[in-house]
Design a binder for these strands. Structure first.
Length: 546
RNA sequence: GGCCCGUUGGUCAAGCGGCUAAGACGACGCCCUUUCACGGCGUAAUCAUGGGUUCGAUUCCCGUACGGGUCACCA
């Protein structure tokens, strides 16, 4: 076979060589050990948790004086959605992920571009042509139906699926046949001519998993699709070589095609990057685990967390505890330190698929928010509200001091409350403070309902004096409690329930429901002072008369 | 079906040949407490399984089971 003739037949317009590109994209001038990595999403409009998960590469890159960039894998035009690139950048920016180079909303920055694969067509074709020249690639004119029939045949014969051996019908065709098809205008793909033997096991060093042994690839996989655009496999190898990527961090589902990638790097004589295959986040489905699914699981979408309003930094705290097994310990020892001060290491990454634990996320967020000053919480909530609850945003803006005071209840203490872990939960929790959103949600405690309700509230209203200190106020509550036949100490009531109508818990909970609509709410005295005397009296009276 | 990856308590996990097998979340119990919280203390684990290697395996090797992933001109 005259490979030069074939190469020119297939790629008449390609005049550059691989060597030219080596000059265009020289090795990066970086310190020893610097990590160059990236995230490489496809612009489907769906930004998922995994994208953020793999953005952990940023920390690795910046911690070593390396580079973190964004590449857009838009080789599948069918799946592309308008505005998807902006969505990725927006989501990453929201979570504080910073790119040193790569695609931007309206263009790109950096010397190793273009960073959108479809704009790198010439580069891929140049590499493809060189492979044809070396006799390592050839055109295949099979139709989709041909391939389907082949697959069925293999299934029936219980043979391995794929384009190989006797099934690789275009592998050794004479150039005349190829020319004839080309003349007819038949669509073709470019396939890699694999010399691999499935008996050979290739050792691959994985940055997370250690030494892996993969079977050598024996199928003639597709390099270039019929539209001349590369498959993921080919684009990945060309790009990560010429963009001088040192570490490829990606989901473990790519482990299955690792043999192809390794084979490509090796035959092109390029140094393989360090592959780092992360474990897939799982979810419980009935009794079994399964991969988080785009269709079934809303929590796979990154927007889910933003909408729910989990604070960005706290979301990272959770992700980091899942990603790096020694992070949690570090964070416990340095609760106020920025998570970026933590030295991230690949070796500490988990290799088995973890169940995504929303409960723990919530707990981490609660802990995080409880340590923040009221102003911070106010700002965060307001920002969230502007996007997802404009009515709340308006109220917060109109009554900023009031909302700050409400947020501050139970906060200034060495044991701050942990009432909410997300902005949406905060919005719900704080609703009772504002007269505009106040509703009674819980019932009155049993021992205080009926006849005693009005009695208790009347007595309380009579003695209520906003000038009282918290101590004086509580002394009065106790007086009322005892005067009406309730035990001032819950313990006493527990011991002799027959001696009392109930305990102080019933009395205070009644007040709590009247003022907040809930049996679970912070300190009554503090709340009252946020509400002000008029509103406090109004609520107590309304509840008495209800 | 082929190939690949994984398997320590309900969940996340530490452990990298010798330990009473950390810690966190959740659960439960107790305590603190003038209410709601917060907090403190405590309870619960035959490291999937069989066989090696070794004086000694949760840790190393092989098999089995189970779980997951992947076998496209999608990434």
């Amino acid at each position: 076979m005259d490979t030069t003739a074939l190469a020119n037949l297939l790629f008449p317009d390609i005049t550059k060589t691989i060597g030219d590109y080596e000059t265009i994209y020289p090795p990066r001038d970086l310190p020893e050990g610097a990590v160059v990595t990236r995230i490489a999403p496809s612009p489907t409009g769906f930004v998922h948790l995994g994208n953020l998960y793999n953005a952990i590469g940023e920390r690795l890159a910046h911690q070593t004086g390396g580079v973190f960039y964004l590449r857009i894998e838009d080789t599948d035009q069918k799946r592309e959605v308008e505005g998807a690139v902006e969505a990725v950048i927006d989501a990453m920016t929201f979570y504080g992920v910073h790119f040193d180079e790569g695609a931007t909303a309206d263009g790109e920055t950096g010397d190793y571009g273009p960073y959108r694969q479809r704009q790198r067509r010439e580069l891929y074709q140049t590499v493809a042509k060189s492979l044809v020249l070396r006799g390592l690639a050839y055109p295949c004119f099979c139709t989709e139906d041909d391939l389907k029939a082949m697959h069925e045949q293999q299934e029936a014969a219980k043979e391995n699926y794929g384009y190989y051996g006797k099934y690789a019908i275009w592998r050794d065709r004479p150039i005349e046949d190829i020319e004839a098809e080309l003349k007819k205008g038949t669509e073709w793909v470019l396939r890699f001519r694999s010399e691999g033997d499935p008996e050979n096991m290739i050792p691959v060093q994985d940055g997370i998993r250690g030494e892996l042994k993969v079977q050598e690839n024996y199928t003639d996989f597709v390099l270039l699709k019929s539209d001349g655009i590369p498959t993921y496999h080919f684009a990945h190898v060309c790009d990560d070589h010429f963009m001088r990527t040192t570490h490829v961090i990606r989901d473990e589902s790519w482990l299955a095609t690792l043999p192809i990638h390794v084979q490509l790097f090796d035959t092109l004589g390029w140094q393989r990057p360090v592959y780092c295959h992360t474990a897939t986040l799982m979810k419980m489905d009935g009794a079994s685990k399964r991969k988080l699914s785009k269709r079934k699981d809303p929590e796979l979408a990154l927007s889910y967390y933003r909408e729910a309003g989990f604070p960005q930094e706290a979301t990272w705290l959770y992700l980091l505890t899942v990603l790096n097994s020694n992070f949690e310990e570090w964070h416990l020892a340095n609760p106020d330190a920025d998570s970026r001060e933590f030295t991230f290491s690949l070796e500490k990454m988990s290799t088995s698929g973890a169940l995504f634990d929303l409960e723990k996320l919530d707990n981490i967020c609660k802990e995080y928010l409880s340590r923040k000053p009221a102003d911070f919480v106010y700002d965060g909530l307001l920002q969230w509200a502007k996007e997802y609850d404009s009515a709340l945003a308006d109220r917060m803006t109109a009554k900023a001091d009031f909302y700050k005071a409400a947020i501050n209840v139970g906060r200034v203490s060495d044991k701050p409350r942990k009432d909410y872990g997300s902005w949406s939960a905060a919005a719900k929790f704080l609703a009772f403070y504002d007269a505009e959103t106040f509703v009674i949600e819980d019932g009155c405690p049993e021992n205080a309902s009926g006849g005693m309700k009005a009695e208790i509230l009347n007595r309380y209203l009579d003695t209520l004096d906003f000038a009282d200190t918290q101590e004086a106020w509580f002394a009065k509550v106790k007086e009322i409690t005892e005067a009406l036949g309730y035990a001032a100490q819950p313990k006493k009531y527990k011991k002799n329930p027959e001696l009392y109508k109930g305990s102080i818990v019933d009395v205070t909970n009644l007040l709590r429901v009247a003022l907040t609509g809930h049996q679970n709410a912070p300190d009554i005295w503090e709340i009252s002072h946020v509400l002000g005397e008029d509103e406090t009296r109004r609520r107590l009276t309304d509840y008495r008369d209800a």
